[in-house]
Deep mutational scan, measured.
Amino acid sequence: MGFKLLSKLLVYLTASIMAIASPLAFSVDSSGEYPTVSEIPVGEVRLYQIADGVWSHIATQSFDGAVYPSNGLIVRDGDELLLIDTAWGAKNTAALLAEIEKQIGLPVTRAVSTHFHDDRVGGVDVLRAAGVATYASPSTRRLAEVEGNEIPTHSLEGLSSSGDAVRFGPVELFYPGAAHSTDNLIVYVPSASVLYGGCAIYELSRTSAGNVADADLAEWPTSIERIQQHYPEAQFVIPGHGLPGGLDLLKHTTNVVKAHTNRSVVE
């Protein structure tokens, strides 16, 4: 069995187990497998329904001669939608809004960016022009300005110390501490036991640490421990890039980060 097929099978099995364990909360999309990078042309966006009122959005972007996937989250909030992270750029984010209108038909009224990198804030200006209120932590807003990236308009308070959590509509926002970046936030959907790890969490097929220019490698494993301790009931975990899975993604990420750190020390 090929690795790609095995990865998709694991996603399907995880979703099936969740649907059985929580039949009222989960209505997993039966329309197909989780979209992969090879299936999404740059400039297009796919939506994948995880649970009743919960979707991931998947886009792709060219970077350094390669094409990478990027995940975000959409959560229903009454007759409105909360968006977590842009679709990595203005063109993708405009396509995301169009796809949401086509498939869901509810307005996106608020959006949260989970850290300051372009795959999370690139497209904020498109959201703002569409009347979406954009939010991020003060740290993310400051770092985005320093980096020359787009800056969300509103500040999220109460997320300055490791372990801080605040309720934001249908989700809980959690600051686990520094990891992929010093400002990275985690998003949890309690009604569906869905954990969105953003770039602080890796997919299972990833074996290298990737972009760690703004990471705190020493603190990252401790931050992941905080996530595990705060959300032990999480059933569906979405990484910032690639295929979702279960809580095993947290341990896998820790292993990859520690291996990278150990290699760096040896070198």
Rank of each mutant, 00 (worst) to 15 (best):
A51K: 06
G240N: 03
F3K: 10
V126D: 04
D79K: 14
I227M: 15
S7V: 08
A165V: 12
T86G: 02
I104Q: 01
V132T: 10
V45I: 15
L96K: 00
D77E: 09
T207E: 11
G197H: 02
Y12G: 12
R120N: 13
N255R: 09
G210Q: 06
E99P: 03
S137V: 13
A19H: 03
S7G: 06
L127M: 07
V212T: 11
S22T: 15
F63P: 08
F168W: 08
L247T: 06
A19K: 08
H252P: 01
I58W: 09
E101P: 15
T109I: 15
V112R: 03
G65H: 05
V146R: 10
I58D: 03
L47H: 02
P244N: 04
A66R: 13
A200K: 02
I151W: 09
S30V: 11
I227P: 01
E101V: 11
I74W: 02
S162D: 12
E80V: 14
P221L: 13
Y231V: 08
L127N: 00
G242K: 03
A209K: 15
V212A: 09
K8R: 09
T254P: 04
E33I: 08
N92S: 13
V166R: 08
L6Y: 05
F174V: 04
T114K: 01
H230V: 10
H57G: 02
I104G: 00
A111K: 03
Q228M: 13
G245D: 06
L9S: 08
S137L: 11
A213K: 13
P35I: 08
L127R: 02
Y12F: 09
V146P: 09
K102Y: 08
G72Q: 01
A87R: 00
V256Q: 06
A133G: 08
L9M: 06
R226D: 04
I201M: 10
V266R: 13
D214S: 14
G242S: 03
A129K: 08
A87N: 03
E147Y: 13
V75W: 02
P239H: 00
I201T: 10
S16L: 07
S223D: 02
G89R: 04
I186S: 06
Q229Y: 09
T14D: 10
P170T: 11
A51P: 03
L47E: 01
T109G: 13
E147D: 12
F174N: 01
E157L: 07
R76D: 10
L13P: 07
I224F: 03
E80Y: 07
S205R: 09
A130I: 15
I201D: 03
V108Y: 01
S16Y: 13
V265F: 13
L47Y: 00
S38Y: 13
N184C: 01
G65K: 13
E267Q: 13
V121M: 04
P35V: 12
V75Q: 03
I186V: 13
L13Y: 05
I40A: 12
L185I: 11
R76I: 08
W220I: 00
Y12C: 07
Q49G: 12
E147C: 15
A209V: 12
Y34V: 12
I40Q: 09
V189Q: 03
H230I: 14
D125Y: 11
R142E: 12
N149H: 11
P190A: 06
H117Y: 01
I74D: 03
Y231S: 02
N211R: 07
R120L: 01
V75C: 04
V171K: 00
R128E: 08
E99Y: 05
R46C: 08
P23S: 09
T36I: 08
A51S: 13
T109W: 14
A144I: 14
T86N: 01
K251C: 06
H57L: 02
L143P: 03
V54F: 03
G246N: 06
L47C: 02
N184G: 06
E44D: 15
Y231M: 05
L217A: 14
F63V: 11
E80I: 15
L250Q: 00
Y48S: 13
K91A: 12
G240M: 03
S113L: 11
M18R: 05
V54Q: 03
N92G: 14
Y231C: 04
T182V: 07
E147G: 10
E203Q: 15
S193R: 11
G240S: 02
V212R: 09
Y12A: 12
L243W: 07
V28N: 15
S191T: 09
L217E: 06
L159K: 02
V124S: 11
V42P: 09
E80A: 11
A259M: 11
P69D: 07
V42A: 11
F168I: 15
A165W: 10
S193G: 09
I17T: 05
N211Q: 07
G2W: 07
R142Y: 15
S113N: 15
I17K: 05
Y202T: 05
R226T: 15
A259L: 09
H180G: 00
V54K: 04
G177L: 02
V266M: 06
I50D: 02
T14L: 10
V67C: 13
D64H: 14
Y202Q: 06
I104S: 00
P232D: 12
G177H: 00
F116W: 15
E233G: 12
K8C: 09
A144R: 14
A133W: 14
V257C: 09
L6F: 10
E150W: 05
V194N: 00
Q103T: 11
S205F: 07
V189G: 01
G158R: 12
A218H: 09
L6D: 13
G65Q: 08
Y188M: 08
P239L: 02
P35M: 08
A129G: 12
T14G: 04
E145M: 11
E157T: 11
N71V: 04
A95V: 13
G122A: 09
V75A: 10
G123Y: 03
Y202G: 04
D118V: 06
T93Y: 00
T261Y: 08
G242F: 03
R226P: 04
T182N: 15
S16M: 04
V108F: 02
N255P: 03
T114D: 00
A90C: 05
E147R: 12
D52F: 06
L217P: 06
R120A: 14
D125S: 07
D216Y: 08
V266E: 14
N262A: 09
D214C: 04
V194G: 01
T140W: 02
F174D: 00
K4V: 10
Y48C: 11
G242W: 03
G72N: 01
N262H: 13
S7N: 05
G53T: 14
S181R: 01
I84E: 00
D248H: 09
G158V: 11
D119S: 00
V67S: 07
S139C: 08
S162Y: 07
G105P: 10
C199T: 02
R206K: 09
R206C: 13
V266H: 11
V42T: 10
H252K: 05
F168V: 11
T134M: 03
A192E: 07
E267V: 10
V265M: 04
S223N: 04
L195T: 00
L247Y: 06
Y231P: 01
P221K: 15
P232E: 08
L73M: 15
Y48P: 05
V121A: 03
R263C: 14
P221S: 10
F3C: 04
D125W: 07
I186A: 11
R141M: 09
T207S: 09
D29E: 11
P107S: 13
S62W: 07
V124E: 04
S161M: 12
G122R: 12
F63G: 11
L96Y: 00
P23T: 09
Q103R: 13
I151N: 15
C199K: 00
E225A: 12
A21E: 08
P152I: 13
K258Y: 15
F116K: 04
E172I: 09
